[in-house]
Design a protein around this nucleic acid. Structure first.
Lengths: 337, 337
DNA sequence: CTGTTAGCGCTTTCAG
DNA sequence: CTGAAAGCGCTAACAG
């Protein structure tokens, strides 16, 4: 097979010019005669010349590439976030690399370490939340590669963060039930130790404190990313403690709860009320329509990307969290009849 | 600011070795003393040395990077497909770049042209379907960069393709309604000219032919990616032609149809039946539960990635489409009472 | 405005 | 098994 593309030298030769002149034609400075430039560009097009990106990255150490690392991709929240990131990246002429950790600490570490080599100019990350040794991230910081957290963060790492008002939304959603007089509001959670799991739990607890209602630890239901496990945990909790409402800290726990209720012929919202953090665009079409706390996922992604570009452009960023507001929408599932 | 990472020369110096020896330590050949190798690796870790990827790509022209280009990302189908691709890529030590075209031909062209420079070793693409000049893709072929289409393809481009059995599923779904005696089955479509839109339409038409039922052109309803436009088109079609069933060629048209029916107090499935291509994991929780033709989206992504790796490993691929089967699941929305 | 030249950091013959 | 040296393709002083 022949070589696929010609290089700058061959193009220069074909034009009877030096490589530096040719090189200049591809940059936006006025250090080249416009006519020469056009001449070069035309010939380049004709011969199919494209500057080798690795050579120029090696020279200038600009890869125009961002990395997004996240626990999962195929869900409403993360796919929207990536959409937002990719859009901003593309608008800035940047490329977007995606990495899925499957919530595995080991994968997270190895992915991050694989980025120490200059492949990317910046990293946008939503953490797995597993593992407590965040040393590998500090190494990143040393390396001058800007890092931004979104949604799921490590509190002990001092980088720009974009999050939503998890605590407040959680507080409000819980308070809504308590103020209506419910005594047994269950909280469905996957990982209390992860930033968002914890923030949402705190909101739930604080609402109880404010409303002077005791918290029954049994009503804090530990679930997992596995559907069957979550299904069983919810089913058991309902059978044993008869909660009057379920507050799902992530979408998939709400849908698992719906299935439990369907199977147990429990009527939502008559017998049990449900509200959930969720980015489901068709929450209104569920039976019954699902009340949601909806995070501005795409905006979260956009803002995270903008923060990276801020750093890359040398702006001094405030090192505190940027907080976007979620929207609470009460539909049928949380109705009091 | 100091330089972030040391390079091979500095590491070699620190070790009192040559750069070539150091370089060898990072490759898997037995041309280096195992002890020396370990010695180097240890020191590298200590000093935080990571081989500069652009330098080695420049030398070896292997970027270990794949690109995925698709019309959108934030939906059930594409996020699953990307998940499948990224998983295979990661397993092979490859990186995954994502690009969203927003179904824009211009973006598609400019993204593809931006990949002629050796940034990626392979491209996996689901096309926008707009524009008829596919010259830019042929240039890609010339360039030795392997290309694989998935789901939405250009028929006139001769590359490996992974698709689902759109025609057959569409035929079956339509036939199901016709055999039950329905006369007016509407087909909701976004772009009849795109590969999948067309294949699905053909299945719909062919089913009519086989069942010896005439096709009413008015029942082929042109919708768009815009919710409001689709909503109006569906509403109008229902008002004017009273279809007995709606067959949505993509998920978002089914949910738009649900909303129309909700607003018009049309009962599904009593007054009108619905089936849709959809990767919604909670189709069973809708009101009423949605009958779906579900594509194996993640497998589609996985297979597309495997094809790329096949090409990269020098395998000779059959240049015809690989077809995966979709699953038709009848739930309440298509029930005959 | 254009050409010459010296590397960017790494890999790979080729000698030894 | 290790080192010396050339060069991947491009860019940016520097000189003219």
């Amino acid at each position: 097979m022949s070589k696929s593309f010609i290089n700058i030298k061959e193009l220069a030769q074909a034009l009877n010019l030096s490589t530096s002149t040719v090189s200049r034609a591809f940059r936006d400075k006025n250090d080249i005669n416009p006519q020469t430039k056009q001449f070069i560009l035309d010939k380049a097009k004709e011969l199919g010349y494209y500057p080798n990106i690795y050579a120029s990255n090696l020279r200038g150490s600009k890869s125009r590439t961002l990395a997004v690392i996240m626990p999962e991709l195929a869900n409403n929240f993360f796919s929207l976030a990536v959409k937002g990131i990719e859009k901003v990246a593309q608008a800035n002429g940047y490329h977007t690399l995606v990495y899925v950790t499957d919530s595995s600490y080991e994968k997270e570490v190895s992915i991050v370490e694989d980025l120490f080599n200059g492949r990317v100019e910046g990293i946008i990350m939503s953490v797995s939340g597993e593992g407590t040794d965040h040393h590998y991230i500090n190494k990143l910081k040393d390396s001058q590669i800007p890092l931004v957290f979104f949604d799921r963060i490590y509190d002990d790492i001092d980088v720009p963060k974009v999050v939503t008002d998890d605590y407040e939304s959680s507080f409000k959603a819980t308070e809504y039930f308590l103020k209506k007089g419910l005594e047994k509001v269950a909280f469905l959670v996957i990982d209390k130790s992860v930033s968002i799991g914890n923030a949402r739990l705190q909101g739930y607890l604080e609402a109880h404190k404010k409303c002077k209602k005791p918290v029954d630890k049994n009503l804090i239901v530990d679930c997992s990313n596995d559907f069957d496990e979550s299904y069983d945990a919810i089913k058991k909790a309902i059978a044993m403690y008869q909660p009057e409402a379920l507050f799902a800290s992530v979408e998939r726990l709400a849908t698992a709860a719906y299935r439990v209720c369907n199977d147990l012929k429990i009527n939502i919202p008559k017998d049990i009320k449900i509200i959930s953090f969720s980015n489901l665009s068709i929450a209104d079409l569920l039976q019954p329509s699902l009340s949601t706390i909806t995070q501005p996922a795409e905006a979260l992604g956009r803002e995270a990307a903008k923060l990276i570009f801020g750093v890359l452009n040398g702006l001094q960023l405030p090192d505190k969290e940027q907080i976007l507001r979620s929207e609470i929408i009460h539909r049928s599932s949380s109705k009091f009849l």
